[in-house]
Design a protein around this nucleic acid. Sequence first.
DNA 1: GTCGTTCGTGAATCGGACG
DNA 2: TCGTCCGATTCACGAACGA
Lengths: 361, 361
Amino acid sequence: MSIELEKALDRVLEGDCVETLKALPAGCADLVFADPPYNMQLKGELRRPDNSKVDAVDDAWDQFESFQAYDKFTREWLAGVRHVLKDNGTLWVIGSYHNIFRVGVALQDMGFWVLNDVVWRKSNPMPNFKGKRFTNAHETMIWASKNPNAKYTFNYEAMKAMNDDLQMRSDWTLPICSGHERIKNADGEKAHSTQKPESLLHRVIVSSSKPGDVILDPFFGSGTTGAVARRLGRHFIGLERDKEYASIARQRIAAIEPAPDECVEVTRSKRAEPRIPFGWVVERGLLPPGTILHGQQKRHKAKVRADGTLVCADATGSIHQIGAHVQGAEACNGWTFWQYEHKGKLIPIDVLRQQLRASIS
Amino acid sequence: MSIELEKALDRVLEGDCVETLKALPAGCADLVFADPPYNMQLKGELRRPDNSKVDAVDDAWDQFESFQAYDKFTREWLAGVRHVLKDNGTLWVIGSYHNIFRVGVALQDMGFWVLNDVVWRKSNPMPNFKGKRFTNAHETMIWASKNPNAKYTFNYEAMKAMNDDLQMRSDWTLPICSGHERIKNADGEKAHSTQKPESLLHRVIVSSSKPGDVILDPFFGSGTTGAVARRLGRHFIGLERDKEYASIARQRIAAIEPAPDECVEVTRSKRAEPRIPFGWVVERGLLPPGTILHGQQKRHKAKVRADGTLVCADATGSIHQIGAHVQGAEACNGWTFWQYEHKGKLIPIDVLRQQLRASIS
DNA sequence: GTCGTTCGTGAATCGGACG
DNA sequence: TCGTCCGATTCACGAACGA
């Protein structure tokens, strides 16, 4: 059995991911993002101090008989990933201490080359209610190439631009998925127990893929990978065993408006930029790529790109550079110069930086 | 061959750690901290942008022929750790993505139970000079008990106090070891290539051991574990293969002044306080039989009986049982739920328990 | 509408003494 | 080993609600 690429591109394929991976054309994916079951071995129920019950991840898909069974499963889907991944492609896997060590060993044994382990620091994790351990406040991602000498994509300058013009570190502070972003079913319950935040996928995709690339997710779930890929001008291939999840993902992605082409381009040149993490505002969805910013009561305007740079009629650069450029000035504080429109009012983007600071610290 | 505990306590034992672990008495350690070789697979030398050479970890002790050889080594020293570790003791291992996955799998396979993975976020990491990856800005520690049901030590309140009265999270931001703390040899070069900061060991030891405990480090190196253990009023056992390192560690530790006893004590948890039956409060006359207790601002009430049980409209039982009963809840902490009226104010009965405790001790 | 308060909830391997 | 019962334990957000 085999599946043609055009039948898979920008689609959600239902079925067992190991089988589907085998059936897909070799080397069809530039990037793979995988959020496999964590194999959490929960015992009894857990209650908060106020006696309410914690809605734990007790889905059948997270149950394995033993570590050995989990290892076997891991090696099977990783073999499938090796098949679909281009030789210069890279793989991201996310997990917790329950499973990530086993994934890491499997990766190394199978010839993948670990490039980084990246820690997702949750700004708002669930507390430890019984006071018996440290608050489990992070998850771990492994970023690996297919082999030690691969010429993989890493958008170094874009990452640096997104991080205050400092090199992007291996620890990323981002909030968990909640509020309107969290997809609910008809009963108002969460549609998927482990939906990942779009900001996380934004950073993964901007860092290690190019516009037009094919991003494959073998555990598609609610389709966060597809949603962000589409918004950022990448193709996706989603594999999902559960029909309900697949259906939710399709609906979700259909509602996504891709950002204009020029907005998903990221910085390539090595130029000194001021130390302002405007990219985080974009990454966190406080301003979507493509948003128009206004300067001096609509006398000037520019458009936001995915890596936090701005583009105007004849130039590209940081919020400060473009602010200075459009005024013909030597320097400019972009945070106070640029404004965005909200309910008919112009609001300085510095407000968003303050929001972000408050949520991070 | 065997080594008596008194010959090992507060000493640095030279020799192969696997052999030494076997020779030590079973169950002699309350806590083990291990900083094993990372098995970094460096290819060629690394240079900074200014062409200066980076003094990488290329020591002979960090070279393994293959992952299999590293795994074998790991399981050998971990078996030794199981031998020396008390049943209710815990183990910390620190590593990077080069080795930590393999350590984690070995731990899990050997029956250890992971309690947390803790990320050490370096506030001042070495940058990535090539711009080909994310700045490697953290290391990972695994904290594990000997088996799933162990009654391990975790000084929850102490950790909370150290973190501005918020639960301590699984990510710790601490600087790397540098400046005066970094031990130099006669030539001014660093004496050990991977010396850990004392602040890291401080947090490890305060969180998961008690004063007087025995802390064993099978890869003692420059002796950071011993230095901090001594300062915090714990015993240490250091195992080190290299005579030079052992000598450096001995000198270093000899210069340490232990903190006064009262300073190494940490906040006692409420769980460790002596238990006071509610009946004692009645017996001592702090509340006369017949007193009316109120729950939730007079929404519920019950009457105290001479034996310390409560009676409400339709039930009799302990303060906890009746508290749960009137709320229709499964459980309740009667000490904090019930209040009595004194001079027109409602006062939690827990206040009386505290009075009684103070008068007893 | 606005502001302040209450309520709900998130990938969680979450107790221990005593009979 | 198992059942019973005491009694210790939460942070950040966003939504909903009420004044």
